[in-house]
Structure formats: C-alpha cells, structure tokens
Nucleic acid binder design. Sequence first.
DNA 1: CGGCACTACCTATGCGCATAGATAGATGAA
DNA 2: TTCATCTATCTATGCGCATAGGTAGTGCCG
Lengths: 203, 203
Amino acid sequence: MSLRYALLALLTVEPMTGYDLYKEFESSVGHVWHAPDSQIYPELRRMEKDGLLEGEEITWGQRGKKRQYHITEAGVEAFRTWMNGTLDYARVRDPAHLKAAYLEWAAPEAAREQMLAHIRHHTELLRQWHDKVREIEEGGSPMLNRRLAKAPVEQRRKTAAFKKFTYEGLIARAEQEIAWANRGLALIDELYAEPETADSGKS
Amino acid sequence: MSLRYALLALLTVEPMTGYDLYKEFESSVGHVWHAPDSQIYPELRRMEKDGLLEGEEITWGQRGKKRQYHITEAGVEAFRTWMNGTLDYARVRDPAHLKAAYLEWAAPEAAREQMLAHIRHHTELLRQWHDKVREIEEGGSPMLNRRLAKAPVEQRRKTAAFKKFTYEGLIARAEQEIAWANRGLALIDELYAEPETADSGKS
DNA sequence: CGGCACTACCTATGCGCATAGATAGATGAA
DNA sequence: TTCATCTATCTATGCGCATAGGTAGTGCCG
C-alpha cells in the first residue's frame, strides 16, 4: 500500500501525468520504491475516485491527450497522516541469505559466483546512490530543486537533509552487504582450501 | 518461488509433515524465510505432483492421520540445481526508507518515533539472531544437529560455518539499520533544535 | 469426564506486483 | 516522407502472499 504514498509524495511538488510519475519511478523515487506503469495508471484512477487526486485532460500536440493529476487537500492530509503513522515491518523473506545458509550444497565455484553476484549487485546500487547524493549536494536534482523552491525557507534545510540521510542509509546498507559477501568469499576459500599439510586435526 | 527451495532444504535432513515444516518456519528457517501454513500445504501437494517429494499417510493416535513427505532424488537434484544457479535480485521496495526520504512531512515526535520503531524492530531481530548464533556455537540446535549427524564428516565444518556466516550477515545488517536510525535521531534533534543564539547564519 | 490447548490440514478472498502484451499519437532524424 | 523512438495509456493473466476463517482428532490437566 506504499505505492499510493510514493505517488502522493511526488504530487506534493507539482501536478504530473501517469507517464511523468512512471518516469520518476524509473529514476529518482525508483531508488527507494519501484513500480511498473501497469500498476501506476490504475492506482491513480483509484486515488482520484478516493478524492486524493484530481485529474484534468491536457491536450498534447494536434490530436494527443494526456491526463494530469494534482493532489487535493484530502490527498495532502492522507499523506501527512501516513507520514505521522507507524509502519508495520514485513516478516523476513531473503533469498540471498536463504541460499547462503545452505551454501555447502553448491559447488565451490558456484558459491563464489553467488558472492560475486551479490557484490556486483550492491556495487551497482552503490554507484547509483552515490551519484544521487552528489546530485543532492551539488543541487543538480531537478525534482528536488522544484520541491525546495516550493517549500517555505525554514523547511528547505530539512527536506535536503532527510533525502541525504535516506541515501546514506542505503549506501551504508549496500556497503555492509558487500563486506558480508567478501567475508563469504574468504570463508569459501578457507573451507575449500587444499590441505597442504595432512594434519587433519581430529579433536 | 523460494518457498519451494526452503522446504526442500529442510526435507534434505529428514521426512517431515506439513505441520512440522510450518513449525520450522515459525522458528529456525523463519529467520530467513517466512511462510504461513496456508501457503505450505498446497505447495507441498504441488511439489509431490512435480515429483520432488513423496507423501505417505502416517497414523497418529486412534483415528488420526498425517501426511509425511520425504524428498526424492529429483527433489535433491532440483535443490542442488537451485543452489548452483544464480538469483535475480528484486527491485528496491523499502517503506522505511521511502518514509525517511520525506520525513520533513512528519511531526518531530512522529519522526523520532519512526526511528525508535526502526531501532526496536531491528533490536528484536538482533536478539533472535544472536540467540541463534549462540545455539549454533554451543551445538544446541536440534535441526542443525540432525543435519550434521546425517552429513559426511568432511561436510560438517562447512554446514555449520555457512549457517553461522548467514546469521552474522543478518546481524551486521540489523546493526547497520540501528546505527542509521540513531543517526536519524541525531539529525532530527539537530534540525528541530531551538535556535538558542539567534544568529541564523545566512551565507 | 469435560474442557482446552495443541496437532494437522484445508479453503476462500483479495491485494500487490510481475510480465507481457496492445493501441495511438508525437517527434525528429535520415 | 518515412521510420524509429518516445510519449501516453490501457488490459489481461497469474503468482506469491496476507488474512481469516473452518474442521477434526490428540493429549493432558483438573
């Protein structure tokens, strides 16, 4: 049910079309929440029906049309309520750690490859998030700039600070995952090392 | 689709009933993968149909019956194949970080409460995982002991090591989340601090 | 012996999301 | 002017899972 609030968050800045929002989900917000267009368009219609948004037909070119949504007072209120409420945490369901727990079933090279894939995946995320933090620091994020421009002066520091805080958390997490996978590689090397001296210490 | 492999992992040790497996999902494996019984029972039937398991009616008391499943060769093969294959990582979808990114919309006390809830949640996980690691080190995990008893001698060190490695990763992750939330608390304090001296440094 | 917790299994509904399409107009480069 | 690419929206199917029930036998305590 977070999709709804991710959409509201974006629409607090300015009116947008479903396609605009979809594009944001492919880049900025997409770093914390992803959604395909096939989920976004119906949700926008539901949100309009629920009075959180209002849509408006915009002409586009000669014959083209698009539907631009702007947030209503009720929408702002719903978003604020969600922001002030508490989250319930989902039960753990983690394929990477599930596999790690039974890694003795994998061939040594396959086990190593799991760890390398884990590192590759999180290194790529890390790269994107670092870019994002740099963008925030340099003031080069269009969406954030529009948000800041619209916000009251005393709010701006907070807005930028919380964004940076968020990405720094994601970065720390990714770094942790990489460190873990590296420990995994070392462990695999150790466990599958050729025993040079044949003193299999039977305690 | 990981549920299937979590079930296979457990059934490599010994035959179990749906209820046995459900109990394991409430305790041991539940730390990396959770599933309700309403998902387990149908999946077991599908797995039997797919030839990965074979079920057997067991009498229980006077009139009682239960169905015990044991893994087939095909099941072992399927599990091994999964273990040797690669995982595809799901797109990021993280409610806690989504909220964190817009924390300026929350009241200061609510923002603080989010961070405290994050800390509480991960502290609780941490407690469970620490218990689990201690259990592994002390050899007090019945399921793991049966697994070790069944495994060839040269495998045992690996089995225990990968389990410990898994939990240590989860522990490091939880510690990271707690550290992040603590930085969040500090940030909130800083941003909402009463400006004692009114020198609002306008650069 | 009655009651209650536990074991054991099952069903139904609905949501969120992935995946894979389809349609149609706009825009710009070759 | 054609053709690819982008903008814009929509539909359909199916899986995984949450949630919330239901039934029936077992075992033990008081």
